[in-house]
Amino acid sequence: MQEVIEKLKPVVEEMLRNMGLELFDISFRRQKGSWVLKVVIDNLEGYVSIQQCEQVSKRLGDYLDLYDLIEHSYLLEVSSPGLDRPMRGIQDYKRFVGRLAKFWLNDGRFVMGHIKEADESKIVVQTQQEEISFEPGEVKRSKLEVEF
């Protein structure tokens, strides 16, 4: 069902841009016997509210009904990336300076701490014991961690 995503992605991106939001992820797949169109939205100014998810769901649902782009029944899910969201590169590292994060590095190391600084050449993380620096290209996977 990749063709559904290819048709929808630019439409969803434009819709979200007009609402001051951004597309984080979109997928269309079978889950437990039903087709699910999952749209994950982000707010670069802060967190995504329930009201924003509802607004996107309503607008996107109306659009899908009007143009009948999906030929069979499906569920539409609109959500945020969550508090423990994955980070996807240098823009996220810069955006979340000061936040607690986990980094899995290509060499097998695991680093957890507060992002102290981030730019195109290095990321600096303050762990409980020390300050650790590494290059963005060394990051295999990363995500924010919830702090209480």
Results as ranks from 00 to 15, higher is better:
24 F>I: 00
86 P>K: 14
63 Y>K: 13
74 Y>F: 15
64 L>Q: 08
45 E>M: 09
24 F>K: 02
29 R>P: 04
49 S>R: 15
81 P>I: 01
42 D>V: 02
74 Y>W: 06
78 V>R: 08
69 L>H: 07
27 S>D: 14
80 S>Y: 11
46 G>T: 05
87 M>K: 13
32 K>C: 06
66 L>K: 15
64 L>Y: 07
30 R>A: 15
55 Q>I: 02
89 G>V: 04
69 L>V: 08
44 L>I: 08
49 S>L: 10
19 M>A: 08
77 E>S: 03
48 V>H: 06
41 I>N: 02
90 I>W: 01
41 I>F: 07
90 I>T: 13
53 C>G: 02
81 P>F: 01
18 N>C: 09
51 Q>G: 08
72 H>R: 12
70 I>Q: 05
52 Q>V: 05
19 M>S: 03
67 Y>H: 12
68 D>T: 10
18 N>T: 08
50 I>K: 08
23 L>H: 01
28 F>Q: 01
80 S>V: 02
57 S>D: 00
85 R>C: 03
43 N>W: 06
54 E>A: 05
35 W>S: 15
68 D>F: 08
70 I>G: 10
88 R>N: 14
26 I>G: 03
38 K>F: 11
90 I>L: 09
89 G>D: 10
59 R>H: 03
39 V>T: 07
63 Y>M: 11
58 K>P: 00
73 S>L: 08
35 W>G: 15
37 L>A: 04
33 G>D: 10
49 S>V: 07
26 I>N: 03
32 K>P: 00
53 C>E: 14
19 M>D: 08
44 L>T: 04
55 Q>M: 10
85 R>K: 12
26 I>M: 13
81 P>K: 05
20 G>R: 03
76 L>F: 09
86 P>G: 12
34 S>N: 14
70 I>R: 03
63 Y>V: 05
68 D>W: 03
22 E>I: 02
17 R>H: 11
19 M>R: 10
46 G>E: 11
77 E>Y: 07
20 G>K: 04
23 L>N: 00
91 Q>W: 02
17 R>P: 05
79 S>Q: 06
31 Q>P: 09
29 R>V: 10
17 R>K: 13
82 G>R: 08
43 N>Y: 06
30 R>K: 14
34 S>R: 15
28 F>G: 02
35 W>K: 13
30 R>H: 12
27 S>Q: 12
46 G>K: 09
49 S>I: 07
66 L>P: 04
81 P>T: 01
65 D>H: 07
76 L>E: 09
61 G>C: 01
71 E>T: 09
42 D>M: 04
60 L>N: 00
63 Y>G: 12
